[in-house]
Each structure stands twice: as C-alpha cells, then as structure tokens.
Design a protein around this nucleic acid. Sequence first.
DNA 1: TACATTATCGTCACTCCCTGACGTAAACAA
DNA 2: TTGTTTACGTCAGGGAGTGACGATAATGTA
Lengths: 212, 212
Amino acid sequence: MPISHDAARRGRPPGTSPRELELIALRLFTEQGFENTTVDQIAAEAGVSSRTFFRYFDSKAAVLWYAFDHEVEALRAAFAAAPERLPLMDAVRQVVVSVNRYTADDVAELRRRINLISTVPALQASAAPHYDAWERAVSDFAAERIGHPPDSLIPMAIGRTTLAACRAAFDQWVANADADLTVYLESALRALAAGFQHPRRTGPVSRRGHVR
Amino acid sequence: MPISHDAARRGRPPGTSPRELELIALRLFTEQGFENTTVDQIAAEAGVSSRTFFRYFDSKAAVLWYAFDHEVEALRAAFAAAPERLPLMDAVRQVVVSVNRYTADDVAELRRRINLISTVPALQASAAPHYDAWERAVSDFAAERIGHPPDSLIPMAIGRTTLAACRAAFDQWVANADADLTVYLESALRALAAGFQHPRRTGPVSRRGHVR
DNA sequence: TACATTATCGTCACTCCCTGACGTAAACAA
DNA sequence: TTGTTTACGTCAGGGAGTGACGATAATGTA
C-alpha cells in the first residue's frame, strides 16, 4: 500500500482513501450481498477504477479488515502498558476487553461488519492473515511473560485459544444482541483461564457472577 | 458430490475418484507449489477434464481437506463412545489424541498436507468451513456434557479453543519434526485444560525451533 | 438385438478476481 | 519551463469457478 496521506506531499493527490472504500464496500455488501457486489461497483462509487481499488487492498475481501488490522496495533500498545504484577491470563483478558470498548456510534458499524464476516464464506476465508496478526500480538506478550520463544507451543496456543474464545464471544454478541460485547468477552476469557472446569451459564443473562 | 461408488450402478462409471485427485494434487502442490499448479493439470493427470474436478470438489483448495473431513466423523464417533465418568476436558483431550494416532505410512502424507495448509495462504483461507465442522463436533459434545445449548457461548468457546490448541500443536510438530504428534497434542490440550496457569515447557524437547 | 434409463463426463461460453506492463494526470520544486 | 514525484487509467491476460447442453458408457428391459 504505497499510498501516503501526509499533509504536504509532492505527487498527484489520491482519488480516494481506504476508509472511504471501506464504508462504500460495507454499505454495498450489506445492501446487496458480498457475492453480488463487484469490485468495479465499489470503485465506481468512489470515483476510481477497479485497478486502483487493488492498489489500496490486496483483495475484494480485505476491505472489511481495515479496522480489525488497526485494532491489532492497539492490542500491542495495550499489552506494552499492562502492569507487570498482573497474572498472565488476567492481563490478557483485561487488555483484550479494554481494546474492545466501542462507542455507541461505532457499534452499529461493528455489528454489520462482524455479521458479514461470520456469515459470508468468502469473508471467513479471508480472515486467516488478519487473525494471525492478532494472535501473534497475544502470543508475543505471553512468550515474554513466561520466558518462552514467541513461536513455541504454549505462547502460540495462548494466542490462538484467546482469539478462538473471543470469536465465540463475538458471534454470540452478534446473534443475541442483548448485552454489551465486553460482557461476552469477559465470560469467554474467564472460562478459558479457568480451563473450562466449572462451566455454569452461557452468557450475560446470569444476573449473579459469571463463570468463575 | 453426487458421485456414488456402489458396486453395481447403472450409469457411466466415474473416470476417477476423490482419493486419486487428492493424491495427485498433494504431489503436484508439493513438487511445484499450490499457485503454480492449475486445476487443468490435476485433472489431466487423472484423465478427466477440469470441469469434472469441480464436480468432485467445490474448489481447487478443497481437494486437500478430503482426509480432514473424514477425521471429523471419527471424532464424533469417538465422542459418542467416551466414558461418562471422565471429566469433560479430559474426555476431549483423550478423544482428540486417540483420533490423531497415525500409522507410520500415513505420517509422511499427513506432514506434507499440514505443511501446505499452514504455509500456503490460499489453503489457510480455505480452512474455515472444515475447521467449523471439527469445532462443532467438540462443541456438541461439550454442550451435551454441561447441559447447554450447542450454539451457546461456553460450548462454542470449548470447540474453538480446542481446535486452536491443536493447530498450535500441529504447527510445532511440522516445524520441529522431533517427536510424535500426539505428544504435542497432549501438551497443548493439558495446558488448555489448566487455563495456561503454570506453563513450564513448550514440548517434548525445549530446544528452539528454527521454522516460522 | 434393440431401446430406454441412468449417471457421469466433455465442451463451450461466460463472469469475475486479480496481476503486470506501460503510459498519463496532477501535484510540487528548481 | 522543465523535471520529479506520486497516484491513476487503460489494456491485455490468466486462472478459478459456473451454467447449459449434448455426448458417452454403463445397466435394465422387451
């Protein structure tokens, strides 16, 4: 992605932006479906050619992962600022939850995006490299905490299982739409850190404490 | 996949089989790479047209998931035969490990397939529906054990985190190649059931891996 | 044998995703 | 003006995947 958006540049100014393409794509995908939307159509609404679209994104599906990829950076920053004394899995849970606090305005967009990602096969297929970057942010943190190489078994397992638990929480949140996303994340991550030993209830409907 | 292989059928006999296509594809992918292999090439070596290939498999990538999908059936069967008294996560671990005991002959093929799946982006992208079926076999079992709906948070989290831990084990096994696959699976699944509370070693040998 | 039935295959035409090559347009600088 | 930089558009093309439709090769029946 060689397109830079500095204030004072030299060459021809960009005809659009990743964010604009993302919003157009999100709207068209929800209105008429992912498969029924062509890249030409998205590009045309942004006033550029389809060739230019592929200069902004590697694929038609990648346009929906723009926000997710930015969250990975926030995740790494939050891990770097996590207090040392906090136990590993508690730190993981708190960091992940804190990064997923969205404002009311963003929630609608987030819900549409997650709904697409969890229902359209072609979008699920495009998830791998983005999930991988997210998992690595977790596994790198875990590796440093327990003194293992970042690409060894336990750190990798922690990174992957953490995302797996979060994805279960995301899906429940999209399907039920009855509580805050962070409540589902808390439940899933606490259950993970407990080794799923004493599962009691499934989600935020438990008015008393969550899973211990 | 409408092709049936009964002993006495009526119509024209199939010109090939899923298994034959799988073996040809696995060989060509390893020899010359996934991207450099065309569907026409695979089909030609099997003596059929590329159109016929797509009657056996939904996509070029799906040909490598043929064996994996069969493992899901074995997984469900093993869960059905799991002793009732065994604690949930112990049963999950024992079942998953037992299903992944391969004979020496199959190990070479398995290693080539996993290596492709964990390195080629297009193959990682094709994993979602197959992983989903595997996870559901686990989450359905977990749901029944703890008395939750199969699509609720905790069972789904158990299904997904179990696969996530196994994938970490698979990758380590392919990268290191120094021990049996089941040893890695045991380590990852025991750590998962312990909530990653007291991580000690990364695997059967703690020398650092070179790949990835 | 002749004909019908059935299941699979091959050919053709087509859409769409995505890429490489190459020239063009629009900004700033000297 | 002239040059440099950066992004864009056009063009040609490969390969995945699909729908339509006829051809092929087996069995079943008269």
